[in-house]
Nucleic acid binder design. Structure first.
Lengths: 221, 221
DNA sequence: TAGATTGTTAATCGATTAACAATC
DNA sequence: TAGATTGTTAATCGATTAACAATC
């Protein structure tokens, strides 16, 4: 059973799913990939113990994570691989096409657009934008780099559900604002700035420099 | 004052710095970047309150994080920007040259090697390796793609202190093993596998697909 | 039936935030 | 001096792990 919390909105009880913690959500794709691998290998049942050993995670944590979304396993048996895979896809919204708007056609942007093209069927970069005149019009895979001004009008015909920001720090907030105006409420930001967004927008920031610098801490003397 | 823990090794008291939590370490580069920005803007003092507002972090957290490493601030005044910047560089080992071995000259590898070249002075990709014969010998920036077999011998002349794995999942563990044999004890892994390493090796794994898929969870219905 | 494994509650561990004495 | 801000302890919050009844 999933956990529910009741909410009162203007006298009407609105049932809303309990907020799942970010740490749990970030593990879901790891589970998904693993059961997909198992599926390909023709294995049709897996226990939390086996998954834990392979993924280097605590079996109790895996069971607890999955149990937030339903009762997917069978006691004494484990999880049916195909069923779990399908359920995880549903939970992660990977059962539909996800159109991503990518702004920034520099090295990183190009790598990202090539990368996602090969890795995901359902997540695809559907628009690649930049500001630099020398980049606009160039071809990246099957995409043509478009002027950033065009994003807002494109968003009227293509339903972008995710945005990726791959521009320099100074331009990131502006790009972010455009995305929010376009109705993009989920954003992956590679610029080293903390973006200001309305509460309903979900931003994750990550950047190479921060990553490398924090790892440098662990270099032995 | 930094916190110390005493350890008994063969009857001799060895003072060892208390292990700093990963969450703290990951915030340090964010502080560093901010004070570097302030320095460039000619500002010479900053309070935890001001930093918190800008970086979207709790001021108490910033003070506590910094206090693990020493008393860097002045009560009633704040932190001296230049001093804090220098201290953070020391803590993160960014006061020395860091040679990175990058394995995998695909789109991601190329983007990374271009990226780090522009962003960091002290962290530099000093060797770029791949297995594919059609990639070996090609030029990426000022680097020539070398055969992966050469990494072990190169490691005898260049002291690689970090490794980046940008190869497909199936090849990642093997590359990781080579790095560990080369004395590389800090590894950033972009392949979607959980790598098995000896306890003294520090690995951080991140990958685009997992990142995008977990974000997809937040797409509104 | 006996062994295995889930779903879930309770216990533990770790990280964040609040509060405040010390002091610039 | 009065106001500001640190460093640090205590309180809170959240995430992980252990334990176990239920049951396949």
């Amino acid at each position: 059973m999933s956990t529910f919390v009741g909410d009162f909105v203007k006298g009407v009880v609105v049932m809303k799913e309990a907020k799942i913690s970010p740490s749990v959500v970030r593990r879901l794709p790891i589970y998904l990939r693993h059961v997909q691998d198992l599926q390909e290998a023709g294995i049709d049942t897996v226990s939390s113990k086996e998954m834990g050993a392979k993924l280097d995670l605590n079996p109790a944590q895996i069971r607890k994570d999955l149990a937030y979304f339903g009762e997917f396993g069978r006691k004494g048996v484990g999880y049916e691989v195909e069923y779990l895979s399908r359920k995880l896809e549903q939970i992660l919204h990977l059962d539909r096409q996800i159109h991503v708007a990518l702004v920034g056609a520099g090295h990183l942007g190009i790598a990202l657009s090539n990368y996602t093209r090969f890795q995901n069927e359902c997540i695809s970069i559907s628009g690649l934008y930049d500001r630099a005149p020398d980049k606009i019009g160039t071809q990246v895979g099957q995409l043509t780099v478009l002027p950033i001004e065009q994003l807002e009008s494109d968003a009227k015909t293509t339903t972008f559900t995710m945005g990726i920001i791959a521009v320099p720090a100074f331009a990131a907030q502006e790009v972010c604002d455009v995305m929010v105006r376009c109705g993009i409420h989920v954003i992956l930001n590679f610029a080293p700035v903390s973006l200001k967004v309305p509460a309903y927008v979900h931003v994750r920031s990550t950047d190479m420099t921060t990553e490398l610098q924090s790892l440098a801490y662990y270099i032995p003397e």
